[in-house]
Design a protein around this nucleic acid. Structure first.
Lengths: 160, 160
DNA sequence: TATAATAGTCAGACTATCTGACTACTATTG
DNA sequence: CAATAGTAGTCAGATAGTCTGACTATTATA
């Protein structure tokens, strides 16, 4: 990464970026980290035990079921690492693994009812954060931001 | 996090978010991840050996020097973890540690010339990515995006 | 000057991640 | 349709990175 958090730090004496502008990457990171932290805190407060690594994998599981290889790619992990996290999420009761009817080699990883409970909690927390952002920016700017980030995702999302 | 990457995935049959909108957090993540990956690749291609964890710590070192505790807080790590990464970055020649003249307990962690070389490589890569984004969005939208993300950082940046 | 607070280190455990080698099944092709 | 290549996942072992708890040294406070 190395994108000059300094400029996003204390603000005063911390300037290594000549332009004085923190990079867009860092600004994006700050937004991302806030939603992630708030979601994790909400999920924990609701009594679910799940680590950040598990959550980052979990959120990539499709409602229709995902294959391990798919998850590993989208989370940018090896299959082995993904399998390790999936095992833990199964132990936690958030996921299940069943044979994939369409391919004898594959297994479908799906979300349990308990898993959906966690998703609901996270979604509520997300919505809360987005509401705060909307209040800060104003409706028009908030919608513009969403639209521009969505448009940007055409080039930043590796899965499209 | 748990913010519904699904909607940012294949696009077609992968929809768990009723609204059909990927969360802002996920959109921000995609942008952030792209700059991070490109910077890391550029730094590696330039012949420097540095891991992602090291980079995430390294970028938080201020040009004026930082203290370990400061770095640990901003990277959201324990002092022990931060110290471990700093040690590796010192071994790699990117940082140095010297006594802090202002506080006998503290040590100042500063960037070496070699460290600045790495920063320069990363900065160039960042600028490259931002140029691509500008081409995709157009000048006006790009500037708006930067402005809105900067404004948003007033509420997402924990260090201000 | 005692006491509390702060900056950092040491030791040990555990989580998350990797590489390499493997099994089982599916797809291709001659 | 048998041999071969490719794909999905697992097993075993190593390593990086992170944590908790206990500690030393120094500074600030009562």
């Amino acid at each position: 990464m190395l994108m000059g958090e300094q400029s996003a730090q204390s603000g005063s004496d911390r300037q290594s970026r000549p332009s004085g502008q923190p990079s867009l990457g860092m600004l994006a990171f700050l937004a991302y980290r806030q939603t992630e932290m708030r979601s994790m805190a909400a999920v924990e407060a609701a009594g679910y035990t799940i680590t950040l690594s598990q959550a980052r994998l979990f959120e990539r599981v499709s409602p229709e079921g995902s294959r391990l290889t798919e998850l590993a790619e989208s989370a940018q992990l090896t299959k082995q690492s993904a399998a390790y996290l999936v095992d833990e999420l199964i132990t936690g009761g958030f996921l299940r693994r069943s044979p994939d009817p369409e391919d004898g080699r594959a297994k479908l990883i799906t979300i349990t009812d308990r898993g959906y409970e966690v998703i609901a909690v996270a979604r509520r927390s997300e919505a809360e954060v987005e509401d705060e952002w909307r209040s800060h920016l104003g409706d028009g700017s908030f919608d513009t931001l969403r639209r521009l980030l969505a448009e940007l995702s055409e080039v930043t999302d590796p899965f499209r």
